[in-house]
Design a binder for these strands. Sequence first.
DNA 1: ACCTGTA
Length: 645
Amino acid sequence: MFSALRRCPASLSRNVSSVALSSRVLRTSLVQTPSAVRLAVPRLPVIATQAFHQSAKWYQTAEAAAEAEAEAVEDEYEPNNGPVTKFKDLALRGLVHPNLVNTITNSMKLETMTDVQTRTINEALSGVDVMAQAKTGTGKTLGFLIPIIQRMIDADPQLGDRVHGYKRARPDDIRAIVISPTRELAEQIAVEAKKICSGTGVIVQCAVGGTQKRAMLQKTQREGCHLMIATPGRLMDILSDPYSRIEAPHLTALVMDEADRLMEQGFQEEIDKIKTFLPDPDQVERQNLMFSATLNKNVVRLVKDTMRPGFHFAKCVNEDEAPTHDRIPQKLVEVVGFENIMPTLYELALKMHLNPQERNGRPFKAIIYFNSTSEVKLAASVFYKLSGGFKRNTPLGGLKAFEIHSKLSQQGRTRASEGFRFATSGLLFSSDVTARGMDFPNVTHVIQVGLPREAETYVHRLGRTGRAGKEGEGWLIITPLERHEVKRRLREMPLVKDESLEVPKVDMSVSGVIPEEAAKLIESSVEAHQRINPEELQDAFRGLFGSFQWYSDKNRLIESANRLAEFGWAMSTPPPPPASVFGGGRGRGGGGGRGALEAVVEAAEMVVLETAAADLEVSMIDEVAEAAAWPISTLTNGIAPRRTF
DNA sequence: ACCTGTA
């Protein structure tokens, strides 16, 4: 082996040490799994010679090694042709380039695939379209990144290697695009993509709003781009700009993350426009991958419009496993009026922050969701005053507080999400910008103020806690105005009324005997509001009417809002309600549920994968049972050919 | 004048 190395150019000599290193790592890890020790011998040449793609000798060695491994795998492992469930096996079976897999197993230390990953990776590697229904926080990002990156390498084997791939990158030959509904999510995906591509020649770029377009263009023109992770607005901006020199004439994969969200009003038009700048799928064959937590009418339409016949439907929502919203305990707090909300949050935060022993000592880390930006801003400001700047020796001392919403600069947003991500204990006052997909570790509480717009929103927000097997709890704080609608809109949720807090029960509009502790909290809250910029209060007042657009009894709404201004903010005269309040609101149609699922089934003949990852079989929705008569093993081995590197 | 998503 080393005689071969000596023949290589001097410039590559530094690879020798890394080769030695990776061999060593490999050897140690294999010793621990006796069944795999035998694989060490044929395995080594593949890794050791990864810089010599050009040599025919390399190909022979690699092919022989792959063959030997595959045979060994078939000898050793019992289900030899089932779906791959270990990342390591993706390389051993020649399905994914070792440079990609090694990063995942060695640097990222990932071993076993999650359910979503098993299903999407096995399926999508073959090139078919996949519509995956999966909860957030289940690792679906890797589920789509691995197959699209691997398929890029298939199309252009030089991309498998770092040195050769880099030289060939161009800005006008993007091979795959991932679209996400928020900037933060796009960035989170881009970070992961860059990580797993670090051993390959695949160049990843991220295009989101709020950043300097020029700088991004220059970087992309200089470095090129194979995989673009983007938000709709900026992507449209770049593709439609004739001077950007960024194009995707050979686009082979399009991924829509949070597809249900991307199909909502506002986004959908933009996506349609973007598609006009992408090559016609009839001319350039394109793989479509969609990820969606729910199947509503919009998603069905998307499926009908863009998925190619014969696409796969991977239902990764396990029926026997409780969904997020059943697994996480949820408490419902009904307050007397809007004026009770802020002091109630104060009471709750104090209680949770000061009693970590009730959570096995886990520090309090909460996201507090509001329905409008202005409410987020106000709550953040009020808490800052309440806590005396979160300094030590104050009741909320030790907490770090952040606010995040779209009216913040992108710099501010990044600072907030990074800050909260790395904080051991803290509060994040947030709009729905973080409701989906964002991964903040160790969130102990998700507190929602006011009824969320949709049940879907409620579930997504709730999903920010209880991640990675950790515990968490949800709190929903509502006023009597929302009581009825909560019962209707959130009837599926196991909300349990909570009576443990004092402040919510206090009628602040009448004088009476109030528990001393509650009185103190209310007093400090009102006092804090008096030190808030009046314009901020006005904004929040107007924002409230926006959040309550759905609420038809406008007189009661105005009355309740006035109480807030009077007793919660100590204003002598409440601000005027916005004129639009008297315009009247429109109702909205529902969707989703069982009917939508059936519609998806009818939309195409599909294979439905529904069983546990470890023992994957095909089970089917009745109508398509006959069409999908082939077992999963055939499907995986038949469509996805074994690759050699 | 509810949230996201280009300037």
